[in-house]
């Protein structure tokens, strides 16, 4: 009986959390499209997400592209397929590694910062203060972050794609002695628009999820410093897991030929 009760209770808590998240998402989304919007807040978030994440995303992409070239060379040379390296690099980066790794890095950087900032605002009553100043906190705090996440992460991924492919090129040409022109040719040869587009669609969804998790956990944090710490952890962990799950689902949607 104890076991049944515990299972039931856990299930109810799960349902409650799901419902609360759904309501939160619905309300936040509706505030993204209903005026007034807060251009200053949107701008601030865009700079935070788009501009200040450039170094970490760029470095991640560069080394990922480099290690991809190196790994596929040592693997593919076993069956004389070195020629496919450029194609492998560009397809892996644009379709998978660009959006996923950029997403995970941004989740760590931005998701945590959002949860910590909004969480602190919650426990110091700043969110209540917003309401008493006739400003809807969902509109002022959450909507700008969602908009910025949705638009900036795809742009970051465009940059990551370019730098990642460039990293593969560097290793291919300067370490593995490929001809530069033929490496570039190989890169373009099998690349299709859908490869890049699917990656950017992923990026937009990841950006949205990161901002949503950061805001949601921050917004519902309670109990002082410890609560804010827990909110930050939950934001990063849940965003990361959602990125990996949605990555599989979107890939299935785009590329399920069978």
């Amino acid at each position: 009986m104890g076991f049944l009760a515990a299972t039931g209770r856990a299930f109810l808590i799960f349902l409650e959390a799901t419902g609360r998240l759904a309501l939160f998402t619905g309300s936040a989304l509706s505030h993204c499209v209903r005026p007034p919007l807060y251009p200053r807040q949107i701008m601030r978030q865009m700079i935070d997400i788009g501009y200040y994440s450039l170094p970490v995303v760029g470095l991640t992409a560069l080394f990922t592209g480099m290690v991809l070239a190196l790994q596929s060379y040592s693997g593919f040379s076993r069956f004389q397929a070195e020629g496919a390296i450029a194609t492998v690099v560009v397809l892996s980066i644009t379709r998978e590694l660009g959006p996923v790794l950029a997403g995970l890095m941004v989740a760590g950087r931005i998701g945590a910062a959002m949860a910590a900032e909004i969480g602190t605002m919650r426990v110091t009553e700043q969110i209540d203060a917003l309401s008493t100043l006739s400003t809807n906190p969902h509109k002022y705090l959450v909507a700008p972050r969602l908009i910025a996440g949705l638009t900036m992460v795809p742009l970051l991924v465009v940059v990551a794609d370019i730098i990642g492919v460039f990293g593969g090129f560097l290793v291919g040409v300067y370490r593995l002695d490929f001809n530069a022109a033929s490496y570039i040719n190989r890169t373009w040869e099998f690349l299709e628009p859908l490869d890049v587009i699917s990656g950017l669609v992923k990026a937009a969804i990841f950006g949205f999820l990161i901002a949503l998790m950061g805001c949601y956990h921050g917004y519902h944090s309670k109990g002082g410093a410890q609560g804010v710490g827990a909110a930050t952890t939950n934001a990063v962990v849940s965003a990361s897991i959602m990125i990996l799950v949605w990555n599989y689902l979107i890939t299935g949607l785009f590329f399920s030929t069978k």
Binding site: M121, T124, E125, Q126, D128, A129, L130, T132
Partner: peptide, 12 residues
Amino acid sequence: FGMLFQGAALFD
């Protein structure tokens, strides 16, 4: 309404 919060609750 106007409200003065216990910890001031200024937007930092």
